[in-house]
Amino acid sequence: MIKIENLEKIYRTDEVQTKALNNVSLAVNEGEFVAIMGPSGCGKSTLLNIIGLLDEPDGGSFRFGSTEVAHVSERQRSKLRKEHIGFVFQSFNLIDELTVAENVELPLIYLGMGAAERKQRVEQVLEKMKIMHRRNHFPQQLSGGQQQRVAVARAVVNSPKLILADEPTGNLDSRNGNEVMELLTELNEAGTTIVMVTHSEHDARYAHRVIRLLDGEVVLENVQQPFTV
């Protein structure tokens, strides 16, 4: 599903050039659950952003499915994002002015889906995430775990092929963290590909495979668990 070859990303300030990613090559197959690990500043978030089409690489190739996307237009990237990719962030990133249901509904609005179908889809996914009872609450009225469940619900509501999670448990206690990891595992088992950036060895164990980065380079790829497509 994802094939990355010799990817480079360079951050430039006036005097200093920092190579955030150097010659990174990796592949993620459909249905896989991959964790990316590494110390702070190793480039894992940069990699995730490029995979999520939020950022552009400075060199190398990135194929999403059968399409080369390393340098496509913002419009094209936006289209790919809203149709195929769901995001889960460490800090949830829910819109404070929207209710739980409205937050979850947002991707569907941008997809141009009709109101009736949106309502149905939102309710389905809220049921699934067990937060239906809080559908009319605003984010600040929820606990961290609940907020992250809403974020996950928002990420999956349009049934994306790929979910990108950036330290999804980073702001949660262990009980809520485990719940979120269980959710992601369930989604993966239902067929969604997941790429997750994490600091937590515990969380990484939920993944099939761990890619370790150091100073912008892949240092180790180990398959923890066998998986079948």
Binding site: S78, F87, N93, L94, I95, L111
Partner: peptide, 16 residues
């Protein structure tokens, strides 16, 4: 800014 980031991530275009 956060709202913009979220909306863009989800797929909102600049025009939208």
């Amino acid at each position: 800014a956060k709202e913009v980031g979220v909306r863009k991530t989800i797929g909102a275009s600049q025009q939208q």
